Amino acid sequence: MTTLRELYEYREMLFSMVKKDLRTRYRGSFLGFLWTFVNPLLQLIVYSIVFSTIMRMNIYNFAMFLFVALLPWIFFSTSITQSTTIMMANSNLVKKIYFPRIILPISVALTGFMNMIFGFVIVFIALIIFKIQLSASIILLPIVMINELLFVIGLNIVFSALNIFFRDLEHILGIITMAWFYLTPIIFPVTMIPDKYLKLFFLNPMTSIILPYRDILYYGLWPSKKSLLLVFLMSLCFDIFAFIFFDRLQRRFAEEI
């Protein structure tokens, strides 16, 4: 509760860090902030060409099938990767100025979340172009996105703390996320998973986080409300663990950095 109170007291600092990161990410580039929209647009064009002419999948409009799940994955993988180095990148702040250190990994998650929201502008435009109709299930999309944000915040907090004591984590995490990508039904439908391995795939929390995006945006289906609730509770419990874990380790941050 003390950490939550401090986060509320330093909320302006948190929002300022997110704004600064969003403004400076593409500073000096020709297109600037437009890259937030151009990147997902270029990805969509590449996937459309590759999977419609070269690697033909027996899935209708495979580019969109992939894209609506890939964008949330990019938010997830980019955020946890960046969170591992956020403490070292801000070592001067950590050692010299008092503020809730937990703000740093949370700001990474919120910045990535904002980028994903901007990317969804391209997704909705593409859905219109490809004539994929949205259903009333779209009203659950914010819940799906919040579930993912909560899970990412927890992971960011844990990895940002661990990397201070175990500097190889940032390199190991690259391998882990690559394997994690192929263990999540992003480039293939769930129906391709053999029945004997299906339960194992659903032990992966990202499976239950990614699939609702596809249900809502591609299939126009209502995701399982029970599954959404379970993911929310899981993410909330993991966040509580992450806050306690971070609080225990942060006392040694200054001397380790």
Rank of each mutant, 00 (worst) to 15 (best):
V94F: 03
L44V: 09
I132G: 05
I103T: 06
N204I: 02
L228Y: 01
T191N: 12
L236K: 10
Y98A: 09
N163M: 07
I49N: 00
F130W: 15
P212M: 11
L44I: 12
T78C: 08
R248I: 01
W73I: 02
L110F: 06
E256M: 14
L71S: 04
K226L: 13
I103C: 03
L41M: 10
S77F: 05
K131R: 15
I54D: 09
F33K: 10
F188P: 05
F67L: 14
I74A: 12
L249A: 04
K196C: 04
Y60H: 13
I210H: 10
L70V: 08
V231F: 08
I146S: 01
F75Q: 12
Y197C: 03
G112A: 06
E170R: 15
I216S: 06
V18T: 02
K20Y: 07
R56M: 13
G28W: 12
F62M: 01
S48N: 12
D215S: 10
E256P: 01
L127S: 03
T53R: 14
M55Q: 12
R25D: 09
Y197N: 02
I132Q: 04
I102V: 14
N58M: 03
I138Y: 04
M64G: 11
I102D: 01
S52N: 15
M145D: 11
L155E: 08
L228N: 05
L31S: 08
E170N: 14
G154H: 01
F181G: 03
N156Q: 06
E255W: 01
A136H: 11
R251A: 09
I186D: 06
L230N: 07
S29E: 13
A89H: 12
T3L: 13
P142M: 10
R248Y: 04
F15D: 10
F151K: 01
N163A: 02
I103Y: 07
A109E: 03
T111K: 13
Y10N: 11
R11Q: 08
T184W: 14
P223H: 00
S137G: 09
S83H: 06
P185V: 04
I80R: 02
L203A: 07
S107Y: 05
V18K: 05
A136C: 04
S160F: 08
E12G: 12
F243S: 00
S208D: 11
K199H: 04
T36K: 12
I74F: 10
K131W: 14
I257G: 06
L31G: 08
L141K: 00
S79W: 06
L150H: 03
L198N: 00
H171I: 10
T85D: 13
M206K: 06
G32Q: 11
L41I: 08
F67H: 11
C237L: 15
I244M: 13
T111I: 03
L7V: 08
I106L: 09
N147D: 14
L229Q: 06
S91M: 11
F201P: 00
